[in-house]
Design a binder for these strands. Structure first.
Length: 288
DNA sequence: CTGCAGGGGTAAA
DNA sequence: TTTACCCCTGCA
């Protein structure tokens, strides 16, 4: 396959660090020159920013422009979204300014499901390591510039992988969850394509919750970060709990803050954009 | 150097 | 509502 190249000029809301470091993805790595290289679908892509240009190049499985527009969510008007969020209050405005270059990627559903099952009770370096080893063992190799990259394996490529093999790759107690979820998706216990058709986010969420290893937080991350692209969810982890308590609830004992309370405030304040508000607040609080 | 506490979602008790 | 699950990190 030939290398392809695509250049975007004067693109708003596009900062490499904000996009790849805001906790939504696990397969993008910074290069020594400050660019980032990642694998998604059957594509290996390098992205660099140079003055008013964003340069994409790599081995991609189709028209690079279409692939970039879709994966980086370029058809969505983030400037408008940020304007609306900034009106809510001064803190949200600050968080939006801090993470002004965030975009929510359109990641493949299966990869997002399995990656966020691995993310449970886990930290980012370790999550990345587990995912990388799964890809190296069961994905397809793509060579670019004498370096080897591996696609995230399909369900078919994962169908004969045992619980023990996941354990050996470092998955820990999530080994069984991965195995069970893979087989629930293969045998149709949860129907992947039906999830795209269903309009009601709560119904999709209920379906995802049937999967082994998928609880409320992981389900919301899947809804927000995969190509299901639902913004009316609010993943609550330690950082989000912390920032929501500091800004709105102000309970001296943070551990006593209950999820229902946070969900209610998020719905009231952020409405249909709560998922995006969560990202700006999360990134702001975790980095600062 | 060794050992122990802490962090982090889900599922099951 | 509490606890076990696995591994990495930081600190004594």
């Amino acid at each position: 396959m030939e290398e392809q190249k695509y250049i975007l000029k004067n693109q708003d809301s596009f900062e490499l660090k904000h996009i790849f470091d805001c906790g939504q993805c696990f397969r993008w790595n910074e290069e020594v020159d400050g660019s980032y290289t990642g694998v998604f679908g059957r594509n290996v892509l390098n992205v660099q920013k140079h003055q008013d240009e964003i340069i994409f190049k790599g081995i991609v499985s189709g028209d690079i422009e279409k692939i970039v527009i879709s994966y980086f969510d370029l058809d969505r008007n983030y400037t408008k979204i940020k304007e609306n969020l900034s009106k809510i209050d001064e803190n949200v405005k600050l968080s939006v300014e801090y993470g002004e270059g965030i975009r929510i990627l359109n990641q493949e559903l299966i990869e997002t499901i399995l990656s966020f099952i691995i993310s449970a009770n886990n930290n980012i370096p370790r999550i990345k390591g587990i995912i990388e080893r799964i890809c190296q063992n069961y994905g397809d190799k793509i060579v670019w510039n004498e370096k080897s990259y591996y696609t995230f394996p399909t369900l078919d490529q994962l169908k004969d992988v045992s619980i023990e093999e996941f354990r050996n790759l470092g998955a820990g107690f999530r080994d069984r969850r991965l195995y069970e979820t893979i087989h629930m998706l293969l045998d149709g216990t949860v129907n992947i394509s039906a999830l795209y058709v269903e309009k009601d986010t709560q119904k999709v969420r209920e379906e995802l919750l049937k999967l082994s290893g998928v609880g409320p937080k992981v389900a919301d991350c899947i809804l927000l970060f995969s190509d299901l692209k639902r913004f009316d969810v609010f993943p609550i982890d330690v950082w989000v709990r912390r920032v929501m308590n500091e800004l709105y609830i102000k309970n001296p004992d943070e551990t006593k803050v209950n999820k229902k309370q946070i969900e209610k405030i998020a719905k009231e304040k952020f409405g249909a954009l709560e998922g995006l508000a969560q990202q700006y607040l999360f990134y702001w609080k975790r980095e600062a």
